[in-house]
Design a protein around this nucleic acid. Structure first.
Lengths: 330, 330
DNA sequence: CTAATATATGGAATCGATATCATGTCAACA
DNA sequence: TGTTGACATGATATCGATTCCATATATTAG
């Protein structure tokens, strides 16, 4: 493997001069510059990124941790995060799937401490904040699509409270008085926001809050199939279900129809995310549209601002707007 | 930031001794070892990964390039690739989306040359092989879910020819004599294998090959919607369509039903991948099941074999088996 | 009791680049 | 003609670890 020293030796110059050429710096005579470039080409030499990064104390890598990639929401988020902003600025993006595992999240943060990555975007929060906070001194950490009451860092998401409120209010206006709610993990702050929006809508219209209408572990199509089964075994069945997830909505609808239910007449269903799946089911799915790609792009830009320009981290909550998309399932 | 030198100074030992402790090497007295560990804890010191990797001339990073992540097939492939095998061996996985862009693929290979990554898995092939081959001397490169006639490297995929043959033969046995075929990109070798399987089945049963029954750019649900429109404008309409993609199949079926077609009576449709979407559409979708997760896991294991054990690259074609899953759309 | 060996420790080189500083040359200007 | 400043170049230190080699001491074997 050729190194800068070999190039220097072959050209009878010091490595300083070669380094100047490599970095397009002035103060190298035209002849030397050309000769050096020629030899570099001949040997097919490329400076070692390993050495450069070591010298610069930067690896030009950022990490994003998400629960799992095989869910369209996170896939799109990643697509937004990786597209152009990062690559153009020569940053690489490491994707970590936590699978809801605390240890993996800490492993990512350890990489920050070891200086193997330059910054972290957490799209879920598995550990207590107290465990994460100490890593703030190692490098910038941002929260995306997840919320925390007091973390002194930028938090980028969308208005989950408002989205839920809008969806549930719409169901109420349609005449529903028994509205179910799905969630994936109860400990997520973002989920709590959603739940708060749901509860606010109920109380604004004097509707009851019923424990049996809460359905957990709602994440994918299979969960939707299961949740419909749970739903019909409830004493007082809801007439509408706010699933918080298009995949879950699709599963619920599928199973409902297989069981002879009419959607939306017997059961109205609302999804979340406005994924393509909403348009291929029968009936098509009413849902909440959220600007996922923009979310991914923005959060990377924000992180790079802190890495590149050294802007100090501070608490800053950004909530992108959402939109109710009405289709046939309600 | 604490370094090994500070630890050494504070403990009145040489950095060699500290290094020995860090790497669990013998020949350090118990007292010194304990004292050093104590100071390390006090200062919350972690060795710089940057420096270590530089020294080791390895970055413990592998890269996977895929066309795009927001397609369930690639999302699952990535899930398989990242899960455990890589992380357990302390390797990180960089994901690059080429978006079918030659330059991005070359950028990934350049990272190999710069030693910023230790190996590459290509899940699509955008550039001519002649442009990729020179990078083989920089580090191991594998092909996954993509095929090449002569590349002297391991190629891991599944039997696309056989899968297509099975699917088309099944349609023929069901009485279809006009069978359409969808493809996403014509230059992909893997696509050619599929097409060959399709053609073989046709010729084995003396069925004609009709140019109009080929539909291109078939990748996602929207493409499916469009392709149905194209299909009904063909003079002699196919009665069955082998879409090569579950999303496309879902789109075609949706549009067919909206247009008053009966599936499978008026048009039979077969997907590919056996994604969850197959089970929530009406009708459910007949498809080809492929072991995606295993594919991802295997290819990473294979790559690590070459990186860690220095096993030489050589041509080696592995084809995992597929399975026809029959549902309502045929 | 000496020779051989195992244990303990540190000095210095090294990995491949960049940055700082010193030095030398040449032209412009007062 | 001496001073100043732009240009050209290289020697050397440095980043933070690991590794090789030398040396000193303790332990065991013969």
């Amino acid at each position: 493997m050729a190194t800068i020293n070999e190039i220097a030796r072959l050209c009878n110059v010091s490595r300083t001069t070669v380094s100047r050429v490599l970095n397009n710096q002035p103060y190298v005579s035209k002849e030397k510059r050309e000769q050096i470039l020629h030899v570099i080409n001949q040997l097919d030499y490329t400076p070692s990124g390993l050495a450069r990064n070591f010298r610069a104390k930067k690896n030009y890598i950022i990490a994003i941790s998400i629960p799992r990639i095989d869910h369209p929401f996170f896939a799109q988020l990643i697509k937004g995060a990786v597209s152009f902003n990062a690559l153009e600025k020569n940053y690489k993006v490491l994707i970590f799937q936590t699978f809801y595992n605390k240890k993996i999240e800490l492993k990512v943060l350890d990489l920050l401490k070891k200086k193997e990555i330059d910054g972290v975007i957490l799209c879920s929060l598995e550990n207590k904040w107290g465990l994460i906070e100490p890593y703030l001194k190692e490098g910038p950490i941002l929260l995306c699509n997840e919320y925390h009451d007091s973390a002194p860092i930028p938090i980028i998401g969308y208005d989950e409270f408002d989205a839920s409120y809008k969806a549930v209010k719409y169901l109420i206006k349609k005449g529903h008085r028994k509205i179910g709610f799905c969630y994936d993990l109860s400990y997520s702050q973002a989920q709590k926001e959603r739940k708060a929006g749901y509860l606010k809508a109920l109380s604004d219209y004097d509707l009851p809050y019923v424990d049996e209408w809460f359905f957990g572990k709602a994440f994918n199509i299979e969960d939707g199939l299961r949740i419909f089964e749970e739903l019909i075994n409830v004493k007082e069945k809801p007439t509408a279900l706010y699933t918080g997830n298009d995949q879950v909505a699709a599963g619920v609808i599928k199973k409902a129809i297989l069981s002879g239910y009419k959607v939306p007449d017997d059961l109205a269903v609302i999804g979340y995310d406005n994924q393509l799946i909403c348009e291929v089911t029968t009936p098509t799915i009413t849902t909440i549209e959220i600007p996922i790609i923009e979310l991914g792009q923005q959060v990377v830009l924000e992180l790079l601002k802190h890495i590149e320009e050294g802007v100090e981290l501070k608490r800053e909550v950004m909530k992108l707007p959402t939109k109710l998309i009405i289709r046939e399932s309600t």
